[in-house]
């Protein structure tokens, strides 16, 4: 894939962010507004500086380019679903499912695996997730997310 002028993209992204925050400034009190206003202006100025730099001496780099691009996409989608479904399905259950999906998908030898192999993996995952969950919630009293099943 071709190398892109990342400085250009970066400067545009930051200008957009500055714009979004500026539009949210609303009716802040005098002292609540001083700092954010200054920071937004500074962000805009420095982004313009970066924009100028992108024209003069841009940093060229490939973006979103990985050896196993599909793996990364599947992983990203899975972890997003993991968090989104956490409250609906239950933290422990979704963790086991998502963990198993990732592990199985990333397994380069998965076609040669027997059902027994998968069950062993699943068992390992269950034990790990339960162990951490129990140690955290019961032993250490660290707050842990709730949901269906625990």
């Amino acid at each position: 894939m071709k190398e892109k002028n990342v400085d250009l993209y970066a400067s545009i992204l930051m200008l957009v962010i500055a714009g979004i925050f500026w539009s949210q400034m609303g009716s802040f009190t005098k002292f609540g507004a001083i700092f954010p206003r200054a920071i937004i202006v500074l962000l805009a100025i420095s982004s313009i500086g970066l924009f100028v730099k992108s024209l003069l001496s841009p940093e060229k780099k490939t973006i979103f380019e990985h050896k196993e691009k599909l793996d990364a996409v599947v992983f990203l989608v899975t972890i997003i679903l993991w968090v989104v479904l956490m409250k609906i399905i239950g933290f422990v259950v979704i963790s086991i499912i998502a963990y198993f999906v990732i592990t199985t998908y990333l397994d380069t030898e998965r076609k040669n695996r027997t059902i027994k192999n998968h069950l062993v993996t699943l068992g390992f995952i269950c034990i790990q997730v339960f162990a951490f969950y129990l140690v955290f919630s019961i032993l250490l009293h660290v707050p842990v997310p709730h949901g269906f099943l625990f």
């Binding site: 034990i127 339960f130 162990a131 129990l134 019961i138 625990f150």
Partner: peptide, 17 residues
């Protein structure tokens, strides 16, 4: 190791129920 964990898990389950 696995055995102890299994035992702990069972106890925990019953405790909750």
């Amino acid at each position: 190791m696995k055995k102890t964990l299994a035992i702990i898990l069972t106890i925990a389950f019953f405790a909750v129920i």
